[in-house]
Amino acid sequence: MNIIRKFKHKTSALMVAILMLLGTKTYAQSATGSGISQETMLYITFGLVFVVSLLVLLVAIYVLQLLKTFIRKEMSAEQLAKYEAEPSWFAKLWASWNDLKPLEEEEDILLDHDYDGIKELDNHLPPWWKGLFYVTIVYAVVYLLIFHVFETAPLQEERYEREIAAADALKASQEAGLVVDFDENTVTATTDAVELADGQKFFETQCALCHKADGGGLAGPNLTDKYWKNGGSMSDIYKVIKNGVPNTAMISWESQLNPLRMRNVASYVMTLQGTNPPGALPPDGELYEPENE
């Protein structure tokens, strides 16, 4: 029973993997870049994955053959004779690709070596194996030429810069057309339920890592009491989110969040005041009393 449950877990994990693969795909396609585009790289990657799957399939077929060999042990002599009369297509292919000499002619290529009874045959190198070796050598030469002589494909540093540029471009396009009618000094808390929910969602996935999902504080301070290290007004909180706090783990979110979302998050933080969650950190910083409501 236990094993079945684990299997179920595994299949679900696999599903997650496949879904996520799709996720990254759609994302990567939207990225742009000069030279070899991300899209082309993606196709190359998929090509590689395809080749790998093909090879895995071959190995699987091989293992099946192996299993069959073991199972044949159980067959009766009659069954076996019938089975072995006609060589399988796989056996034929195997023989031709390897340039195998029929076993009966083996005497002709037996070398005069004898090491503690071990003899050696003088068979040819398997042709497909030789071909594989040549292909990998060509691959190596082409690879080095592309990346280090003609420099037509980007190395890791440039690829990273492109990845960041693509992400920035995406963000810019998402933010085009936003109407922002406030700055960090004039910002006021929103009371709109949808906007607060948006702030809450962000808080619980990102801020909660340090401030705990209920705001009680972990690595970062408690946000639910009246004591603040950098001021407790809407404008103060907004500034901390926007600019970060130097020499602490609080980073600046400005490059990642647009002003409306920063306001939503700050507004949500304001709603945590006085919630008194269990296990909250002790007060830290200075008492802040709102001047006027």
């Binding site: 503690d116 009874g117 071990i118 050696e120 068979n123 040819h124 190198l125």
Partner: peptide, 18 residues
């Protein structure tokens, strides 16, 4: 290269390949 041909009692397939 020692134990497999010993156990199988077969000649090594290809000296060239070795």
């Amino acid at each position: 290269y020692y134990y497999l041909p010993k156990a199988a009692n077969r000649p090594v397939y290809s000296y060239k390949l070795s």
